[in-house]
Amino acid sequence: MTGDIAIRTEALSRYFGAVKAVDSVSLEIPKAQIYGFLGPNGSGKTTMIRTLCGLLTPTSGSAEVLGLKIPDDAEALRQRIGYMTQRFSLYEDLTVLENMRFFGEVFDMEPARIDARIAALLEDYDLGALKDRQARAMSGGQRQRLALAVATLHEPELLFLDEPTSAVDPENRRDFWESLFALVERGTTILVSTHYMDEAERCHGLAILDKGTLVAVGTPDALMDDIKAQVLTIETAEPASAKRAVQDLPGVLSIAQLGQRLHVLLDPQTEEPVRHVEEALASRSVAAQVTQVRASIEDVFVMATRGKTRRQRGRATGEAA
């Protein structure tokens, strides 16, 4: 099956002094998929990606990327991967064209191929009108498109995208994901890190990281189906009172407030969860509407990281993060 695996890590660790940025992560990432690393800030996503690109030496464990051992064969890997760093790392004082040409030449591309690729990418990523604009004078979304264009310029088999949408508005995020799917259709493998739940849900495969460790792995659907919790939402005009009424109920694992709504995770053993909660609310005379819903990726995340932090985490990786 090695032929279908783009990345395989075994007990991969990277420490910075006492900080275990990546702690014994074992993973298999299939080819031609969008694979997501989901985790809050500081969970080790960037360190993981840098290690897989050969930019950081693992403290222990091993990794194989496109069949090459990392970090020993990192140099041979360079031609075959593209990396979009978390922070914009193209030259701000060069124009779109100049940046693209520079990286084309540094990647040893033939001049004719550089020209053809640039023309195609300007079209694909809607950068034609901006081609003589310096990167520093571009918006977050435009820069992100440029960064993706440069990362894919040499048509790498494997693309690393580190929080590519963090500086981008929702509409551009949607367009951006469309272009990722287009790349995957052409056979590119994409590894993307994110702290957005909606983006995580769009990945083919997902690894949830927390404090450097792998806490859950699988397809988003499987993760949501296999969640060891029942999920309820409570709609109410008095969310604070409702929260007080529910939080100490037996079986309640976590409560998160989203405006006028409470999102409650309950132990799967709890019988008739809706009635159980409704009664608790009624006993405190809180008017509310309780419904059982399907678990989201965020619920998966909350459950996966619960064991590590006893206290309720709430919206640990909320949209606003």
Binding site: R50, L55, R78, Q79, T85, F103, V106, F107, D108
Partner: peptide, 13 residues
């Protein structure tokens, strides 16, 4: 400092 190096060292240069 500007972060360009992280991109540059990922290339075959």
């Amino acid at each position: 400092e500007l972060g360009n190096m992280e991109m540059l060292i990922t290339t075959p240069v």
